[in-house]
Design a binder for these strands. Structure first.
Lengths: 339, 339
DNA sequence: GTTCTAAATGACAAGCTTGTCAATTTCTTC
DNA sequence: GAAGAAATTGACAAGCTTGTCATTTAGAAC
């Protein structure tokens, strides 16, 4: 308490500027000096004054992650990966829930970014597809990474997986099991503009590849939430002829399908096969456990944080696009259709 | 960008100190002046320099929440409530995952608290029961709030619910349905010392009240995780004579019980009734949905943050204990036993 | 060994707010 | 309306680090 850079400098017999250089891993310090300074810092249990650093460097050592609480289960893994990465670099991750209408979100983000002077922002869906937010962050000149962007995915840096191929794999898996009447349960239709819909398209690809028809009634759009999955499944399963399998665009909706099926007395996977997407915790926790497409969520978060941290201290972030691999995980919710 | 307190002061025709007072909602500013300053701040779109504030006031405007990622689903609601509260006061919530052995946790927390100079810390189970951590924070003189502490619950401020009564209510509910052979699935036995176990005791209370015997084999301890719930349920349900109902000490373990039951072909609630505790998201998302004891998790988080924020800027936090109400939520996982 | 170049180090100011304490204004009371 | 008390306001220093730029030291080339 009260040990400052001056104390360290005195102890190591160097100037405060050299101590500063060592702290910030700057070049042009001889190894011997670096060691001496390090030793002095340890001996004195020196903790740099974060306020002073912030003030002098105009950095906050803070990364922000904005998310919709409804999608919490998807965000958890990303947050975890990002937080770990931040900690290793003495950064802190501030996870900010956002609420209210989409139109108000940019203002709320602007407020937080400017007040806290965030050094970087991680944008997850659906914010990563909100171009107003992208515009905002570009204007504010805050480095940001978009997770799985679909709308104008080339703007800014991003981390993503091949959603389309994931949907292809899930659908193929069902086709290989013998399903022919398969429905797709997608995320919400974009309110403004029409962003690409890779998961739906992947589903259509696989169906077309197998020569299977997809009537309009077999595609339905939810909200990525459990309850919307229940609702949509009710529509799908209430029809005279119901599909034998459902490809859901995320795990939460797939879990909703499971719930709706159970209420109707349908056995999964015997009467109905279901696939999810993400491999969030919820996929492992429902019965039957979900066959799903695993996204490496923690890695995604870690990669996003990594890119942001690599951009420090200048804050210049190259618009890198980093792709991570997905994987089909077969669990208990898929089986051949009843003969 | 670049608007400072001096600009605001000039515009409002006051000194910078008065602007500072208005910003910090200090008393002794005439309403007319306060208004003028506010107007000037708005007109200039003034954003205080967080670094300078931190440096001058030795406050960071940061609250920390440390959690074990395994228990993420329980934490989500608390984090949400706390983050909202923080935002309203221009504070930021940093949610830090902790990993590794219990013995290493205090050092990791100390590092983060000191480096980031956190203005307050929220401790959730199991950290809220780790007295080493409590000692640490007292030594560091950082205000902290313990959520649901059981070990020496009078140390420090806390937010809690009546766990014991919750367990009583869950158990009574099963007894009223006609169950007589009920097992309890608890959280981990404390590694050091023997903290009170209110949920288990509540279960025992209710059983005793009804004059029902509880053989040793009907009490088993898990880890509060889904997979430990599965494992323990396997033990319980694999026995020659299995209980007709299981009271689980949290929702994740109850979900594990559901999963284990399903794998054995047992129908819930017909063959087995299950109750959870918490009413985390997982309780609503499994099939059948869990009958559980609802804790107002978001309120708990909000209350904890509230207490911490109320202690600013002095950092003196009275050891208040704040109790919130619980509620039995009957869903689909409980029913009378098969005759 | 000298000269030039590059690397390493240091001196010092700047950054913006809050705390302290003094000065001024307003209010109260008689 | 005078005196004293209370409320309001202001002047100024302090806080600790990093950026800038100058200086010193080490290294390279001949």
């Amino acid at each position: 308490m009260g040990v400052t850079i001056h104390d360290v400098a005195a102890r190591a017999g160097v100037s405060i500027k050299t101590v500063s250089r060592v702290m910030n891993a700057e070049p042009n310090v001889r190894d011997a000096v670096r060691e001496r300074v390090r030793a002095a810092m340890t001996e004195l249990d020196y903790i740099p004054n974060a306020g002073a650093r912030r003030m002098a460097s105009a950095r906050s050592l803070l990364i922000g992650l904005f998310f919709r609480p409804q999608l919490a289960s998807y965000i958890t893994g990303i947050q975890l990966g990002a937080a770990r990465q931040c900690r290793d670099r003495d950064y802190l991750l501030a996870a900010e829930p956002i609420e209210g209408r989409d139109a108000d979100v940019p203002a709320m983000i602007e407020r937080t970014v400017r007040r806290a002077h965030l050094d970087g922002v991680i944008l997850v869906p659906p914010q990563s597809n909100d171009l107003d937010i992208v515009d905002l962050l570009e204007r504010l000149q805050v480095p940001f990474v978009r997770v799985s962007p679909t709308a104008e995915p080339d703007r800014g840096a991003s981390v993503f997986v091949d959603d389309r191929r994931g949907a292809v794999e899930a659908t193929r898996h069902l086709i290989e099991l013998g399903h022919r009447d398969i429905a797709f349960l997608g995320g919400p239709l974009a309110s403004k503009g029409s962003a690409p819909r890779p998961r739906r398209d992947g589903f259509l690809d696989a169906m077309a590849e197998a020569g299977l028809p997809v009537p309009g009634s077999r595609i339905i759009y939810g909200e990525f939430t459990f309850s919307s999955g229940q609702r949509c499944a009710d529509t799908l399963l209430g029809a005279r002829a119901r599909p034998t399998a459902i490809v859901a665009a995320n795990d939460a909706m797939a879990a909703g399908v499971l719930s709706a099926a159970a209420r109707r007395g349908l056995k999964v996977p015997d009467d109905l096969s279901v696939t999810g997407f993400d491999d969030a915790e919820i996929a492992r926790v429902v019965s039957p456990a979900l066959t799903t497409i695993r996204q490496p969520l923690e890695q995604i978060g870690a990669a996003a944080a990594d890119m942001l941290l690599a951009a420090q201290p200048s804050g210049k972030l190259d618009p890198i696009r980093r792709r991570l691999d997905i994987e089909l995980v077969v669990r208990e919710s898929t089986a051949p259709p009843r003969p």
